[in-house]
Design a protein around this nucleic acid. Structure first.
Ligand SMILES: [Mn+2]
Ligand SMILES: [Mn+2]
Ligand SMILES: [Zn+2]
Ligand SMILES: [Zn+2]
Lengths: 138, 138
DNA sequence: ACCAAAATGCACTAGTGTTGCAGCGATAAT
DNA sequence: ATTATCGCTGCAACACTAGTGCATTTTGGT
C-alpha cells in the first residue's frame, strides 16, 4: 500500500489510479493549481474525471479552493489545522500579478475582522495581490 | 444639464443616454450589481453596450469591481476616498450566503496585513461571508 | 465469480467575459 | 452648411470555465 494510497484512505476516498496521480501532482506544486493546469498535465485523461476528482478532494477537505480574483478557481492541499474541514480557511493567499501564481501563506493567519452590528461573519476570504518573492528577485 | 450628466462629466465620461441610465441604476441600488442584473433591468439594451459601459465606469473609477467568490463580478459606485482611483480598494465587502447579496462596508477599512519578506503587497481583497443584517432579522 | 456501487468517458449545455466589425450619431474643422 | 472624424452602439461570434446526463467500465465486497 503506497504512501498516497494511505493518505487518501484517511480521507475516506477510494484510491483510484487517477486520484492518486492527481493528488501527487497537486502535492508536488509549490503553488495553487487551476483545473486547466491539471488538464494540461494529464492530457490523456478526461476533463470530467479530473473535474470530479477535484470536487471530491474539495468535499473531503483534501484540497481547498482559492478564489484569487482571476476568475478561475485554484486548488491547494489542505494542511493540518487549516480549518477547511469545518468550512474555515483562515490563512491568507497571495496572488502575484506578475507571474500570475497564487500561493498559500499558511502561517499568515487572517486577523480578526469587525463587521457591523446585525451581520454574522462565518468565513473570510483574504487575497493579497502584488509581487511574489521570486518575481521580486529578478 | 442634469445632475447625472454633471457627475459623468467630472469623470471625463461623455454622458450618453445609456450611460446616464446605467449610472442612475447602480446609484439606486443598496448592493453591488452584476452585469447580468443590469442586463435584466435594461432588457431592451444590448449586452455589449452595457458591458462596455461598466468597463468605462471602472476605468474612470466611477465604480469598482467586487469579487465576492461567487464567480461573477459585481460592481458598486466608488465613494470619495475609496482609493479606487489609485488602484486601492481599501474597504471590505460582505457577501451574504443567504440572500446572495454583496455590499460595501465602506467605513470598515481593511487592517494592516503582514506578508512574508520578499513579497510586495499592492492591493488587498477582503470578503467576509455570512448572514447580512436583513436576513438575520427575519 | 458475481453483484451493487462507485468511478469514468463522452457528449452536450449554460453562463460569463471578450473582441471584431460595420453602422450610426455627435462633434469639430473647413 | 458640408464634410471629415471620432466615439458609441448593436450584432455576431468566440474563448473559457463550470456543470450535467447517461452509458460503460472499474472497483470492492460477498
Ligand atoms: Mn490556502
Ligand atoms: Mn466596495
Ligand atoms: Zn510572481
Ligand atoms: Zn442576506
Amino acid at each position: 500500500m503506497s504512501e498516497i494510497e494511505q493518505q487518501l484512505a484517511e480521507f475516506n476516498i477510494r484510491p483510484t489510479a487517477m486520484r492518486m496521480l492527481v493528488y501527487q501532482f497537486i502535492e508536488q506544486q509549490q503553488k495553487a493549481v487551476s483545473l486547466s493546469v491539471i488538464e494540461d498535465y494529464f492530457d490523456k485523461a478526461d476533463r470530467t474525471t479530473l473535474y470530479r476528482t477535484i470536487k471530491t478532494f474539495e468535499e473531503k477537505a483534501v484540497v481547498h479552493q482559492i478564489d484569487d480574483g482571476t476568475g478561475v478557481a485554484k486548488y491547494a492541499l489542505c494542511e493540518p489545522g487549516c480549518g477547511c474541514d469545518i468550512g474555515l480557511d483562515l490563512h491568507l493567499h497571495f496572488h502575484c500579478t506578475h507571474c500570475n501564481d497564487t500561493t498559500c501563506l499558511t502561517d499568515h493567519k487572517i486577523p480578526k475582522i469587525k463587521v457591523p452590528a446585525g451581520y454574522i461573519a462565518e468565513n473570510i476570504n483574504l487575497v493579497v495581490k502584488g509581487i511574489c518573492d521570486l518575481c521580486n528577485r529578478t
